[in-house]
C-alpha cells in the first residue's frame, strides 16, 4: 500500500493499526519515552513534519491520524454522532498506544486533536504523563464564548455541524478551496505559502474523498452535541486534568480573540502553564522553532506531581 507523506518523515515508519473495525494510521519514529501527537482540521499527522525529527531525538514519537482523517478509515456514522466523539477518538488512541506497549505517555494535540487530547486526559488520567494543548479553548468554553470576533472566526463550527448533507455537498464541489481556506484565514501571514506544498497536497487529497468529508463533518456534529455534553458532565462533576499541562496559543491564533484564555483552562487543569507563540493558528507549521523551544523543556521536565 502506498504511503503518501512518508518522504516528510525520514526515518519514521508508517503503520496501519486496528481498533476493532477502525483502521488508524500512525507514523512512528525516534527513541525514548512515548509522545503521541494528534493533528487538527483539515489536516492529518503530516502537520507535525517540521517538528517530528526534533521530538524523535528525545521521544518515541507516535503521530496518528484521527478516525475519519488522513489515512485512517471512516467508520459509519450514527444519529448521535458518538462515533466521532472525542471520547471515542480518545479510546482509539488508548488502544493503539496499548498495542504499541505504551500504557503511559505524553500527549500533544492541536485543534481537533487537542480536543481529543484533553478528553483523553480527563477520561484516562493514568495514561497521560504530560499534556500540551495547542491553540484551543475547550469545546465547552468555545461554544460559550460571548465574543463576536471569536464567533465569526469559528463560523465553521456551526456550518460543519449542520445536518448532513449541507456542508458535505458544498465542500465536495470544491474541496481544494475549502481546505485552503483556514490556511489563508488563520495563519499569521494570512497566506497558504507558509504550508509546505507537499503537506498541503496531502491535506487537499484527503478532502477529495467523500467519506472523509462526511466523517470530518461528523467530528464537528459531535462537537456540537456529545463532546459538549461530555464537557458539561465533567465540569458539573468537578473533574479536572491531573497531569501537568502546557497550553500554547498563537499571538494570532484562535484563542487570541478571548480576553484571558489561561483563566478558562485553569478551571480544567490542576497544573497549568501557558504561553503565547508568535504564530497564527497553525503553530507547528508556522513557527516550529518556537513550538519546540516551549514544548520540549516542558515535556522533558520531571514530573513532581505524580508518584
Amino acid at each position: 500500500m502506498i504511503d503518501p507523506g512518508a518522504e516528510l518523515f525520514p526515518g519514521f515508519v508508517g503503520r496501519r493499526m486496528h481498533v476493532e473495525d477502525v483502521e488508524i494510521f500512525v507514523r512512528i519514529g525516534g527513541e525514548g519515552p512515548a509522545l503521541l501527537l494528534l493533528h487538527g482540521y483539515p489536516q492529518s499527522h503530516v502537520m507535525w513534519h517540521r517538528v517530528a525529527a526534533e521530538f524523535a531525538s528525545r521521544f518515541t514519537v507516535v503521530a496518528a491520524d484521527l478516525r475519519g482523517y488522513g489515512q485512517s478509515s471512516c467508520p459509519p456514522t450514527d444519529m448521535a454522532h458518538r462515533t466521532y466523539s472525542k471520547r471515542v477518538m480518545a479510546a482509539d488512541m488508548i488502544s493503539i498506544m496499548h498495542q504499541l506497549g505504551q500504557v503511559r505517555f505524553s500527549l500533544m494535540g492541536h485543534d481537533r486533536g487537542a480536543r481529543v487530547a484533553y478528553r483523553l486526559a480527563l477520561d484516562h488520567p493514568d495514561a497521560v504523563e504530560r499534556l500540551v494543548l495547542l491553540d484551543i479553548i475547550s469545546t465547552y468554553d468555545q461554544w460559550h464564548a460571548d465574543n463576536q470576533k471569536s464567533r465569526l472566526r469559528m463560523f465553521h463550527w456551526g456550518f460543519l455541524a449542520q445536518p448532513a448533507p449541507l456542508p458535505e455537498s458544498l465542500i465536495r464541489r470544491s474541496p481544494v478551496d475549502w481546505v485552503d481556506g483556514p490556511f489563508r484565514r488563520a495563519t499569521k501571514a494570512k497566506s497558504i505559502d507558509v504550508i509546505d506544498p507537499r503537506a498541503l497536497a496531502l491535506y487537499r487529497e484527503a478532502f477529495k474523498d467523500s467519506d472523509h468529508v462526511h466523517a470530518t463533518c461528523e467530528d464537528y456534529r459531535a462537537g456540537a452535541t456529545c463532546d459538549l455534553a461530555d464537557d458539561v458532565a465533567d465540569l458539573n462533576a468537578g473533574h479536572q486534568i491531573e497531569c501537568p499541562t502546557l497550553f500554547l496559543w498563537g499571538t494570532h491564533g484562535t484563542p487570541s480573540d478571548i480576553d484571558d484564555p489561561m483563566a478558562l483552562w485553569r478551571r480544567w487543569c490542576r497544573h497549568l502553564e501557558g504561553a503565547t507563540v508568535d504564530s497564527g493558528h497553525f503553530i507547528a507549521e508556522e513557527n516550529p522553532a518556537a513550538l519546540l523551544a516551549q514544548a520540549l523543556p516542558f515535556l522533558l521536565a520531571t514530573s513532581d506531581v505524580h508518584p
Binding site: R151, G158, F159, D177
Partner: peptide, 29 residues
C-alpha cells in the same frame, strides 16, 4: 446566540465572513 442556537443560526456567522468565501461556497450549488 448561545450554545443552544449557534448551530441553528450558523448563517449569521457564515454569511458574514469576508467576500468571496461564503459566495464561493454557496456558489458551488
Amino acid at each position: 446566540i448561545a450554545v443552544d442556537n449557534a448551530v441553528g443560526r450558523f448563517h449569521w456567522m457564515f454569511l458574514a465572513r469576508p467576500a468571496p468565501f461564503p459566495e464561493t461556497m454557496i456558489g458551488h450549488d
